[in-house]
Each structure stands twice: as C-alpha cells, then as structure tokens.
Design a protein around this nucleic acid. Structure first.
Lengths: 107, 107
DNA sequence: CGCCTATGTAAGCAGATGCCTACGCTTCTG
DNA sequence: CAGAAGCGTAGGCATCTGCTTACATAGGCG
C-alpha cells in the first residue's frame, strides 16, 4: 500500500496514469507524450507496475501497459480509514460527480 | 493535490494520520508515539498541514492537530478519475449508506 | 544469419528529503 | 520579570530519486 502512495507521489507517474486511463498503450507511445526521455518513462512504468497500479503484457517486441483498476479500489478502502463519516461525504461526492457527468461544463 | 499525494508517500506521515484518526492530539503527544525525535515529527506535521491533510490550532503554548477530513474526499474524487466504473460503485455505496442513515446516528 | 525496432538496464550526477543537534520564539506561572 | 514548558526553525549530513547517456536484450523481417 505504501508502495502505491509512493508511486503516486511523482507528478509524472500520475500523468502516465491519466494517459492510461484512456486505454492501454505501449511504452513508446507513452513516452512520446512527455518531454523527457524514454528510459525515464521506462523507470516510471516499472515503479507503477511494482506498486500494482498498472499491468503489463508483451506483444511481440512491444510492451502494453494498462491501469490496474482494482488498485484504486484498494486505495479507496485504505484512505477511508482516516475518515470516520466518510460514507456521508461519499454520497455527496457521488451525486456531485453524477451531476457533473450529465453536463459537460458544470461550473 | 499532488502535495497531498507526496505527503502520503512517507510512511511516518501515514502513521501520524492513523494516530490522528482517533481524535485530535497535540504535537508533543504525537511525537511520543514514535522512536524518532520531536523536530522530525514537527516537520512531518508541517508537510501534512501544507498539503491540507491536517489542521492546526493553538491552545496556549500547545498546538493541536486534527485530520482534515474533506481532504480525503478530494483525494477520493481525484483517484476515481482513473477508475472508469468507479463512479457507479461510488453511487451505489452512497445510496446504500443514505438508506442506512435515515435512522439516527450514534455519536 | 544480419539488421532494425521496441524497450529495459546500468552508471553517474544533481536535486530533493528525512533525520539529528542546537537554538529561537511564545505563552504560562510564580 | 525570570524561568520553564511546548514547539517550530536552521544548518548539516546521509540517503533517495529522477534524469541523462550509453549499452544490452529480444523479437521481427529480409
């Protein structure tokens, strides 16, 4: 769990997850979205995978990465321990998000 | 938001939040729960406060810290962006809890 | 095979970070 | 006011971490 939190501490890794939330991608394609070098992204992907936040599969010479969604459920459960009336606010958040979904520009 | 994630990357700070989830505490009392020195804890508390994860108030010469619960709601909303069916589950959990809450809640 | 493509790995460097000791600043208390 | 109590701050050090430039590895293709 701490590995997940450490992995999320790096903005670049969060950006990678945002990219992957749109669907799986291969390593090179991910790297092209950033100003940094490919090896740097490769390192980040390894950290994300070790933390269980992404999964990886090989396809020939390519490596396809995808968000491991269950990990976010685990994170949710973990964070709720610090939040005694969390379920009340959970409701609020859900309804607000649901409204935001229905309208493209809520604010 | 990234500040919150960075703050949570440190195990000691998570431990402090766990302590505070049981109720507010003064700085010295928090430090006594760890093997490390008081200034180290003071630093951690500053990081947690800057990140918005805890609040602080003064009481004479003492400083009382408490978890800022809304921050965990913010974290939840943030993390749900990576979890495409997260909103569905969020909504289900909220509605279930809303039904349970129609009865008076203990305090 | 020989070479190209797609990626991970290694070594080294610079900046960030956590911890420690020493010290400074408020707020009580007598 | 003087001293103590309760905490934050400063400076220094060791470690961690992310980035870059080579280099290694593995599969695909002629």
């Amino acid at each position: 769990m701490q590995a997940m939190l450490k992995a999320l501490a790096e903005p670049r890794r969060v950006a990678i997850l945002e990219l992957l939330s749109g669907g799986e991608m291969r390593a090179g394609a991910i790297a092209e979205h950033f100003e940094t070098t490919r090896p740097a992204i490769s390192e980040h992907l390894r950290v994300l995978e070790d933390a269980g936040l992404v999964t990886q599969r090989r396809e020939g010479t390519r490596r396809i990465y995808a968000v491991r969604k269950e990990s976010f459920a685990e994170l949710r459960r973990f964070l709720d321990r610090f939040w005694d009336d969390g379920l009340t606010r959970l409701k609020d958040a859900a309804e607000e998000e649901a409204r935001a979904r229905r309208r493209p520009r809520p604010r």
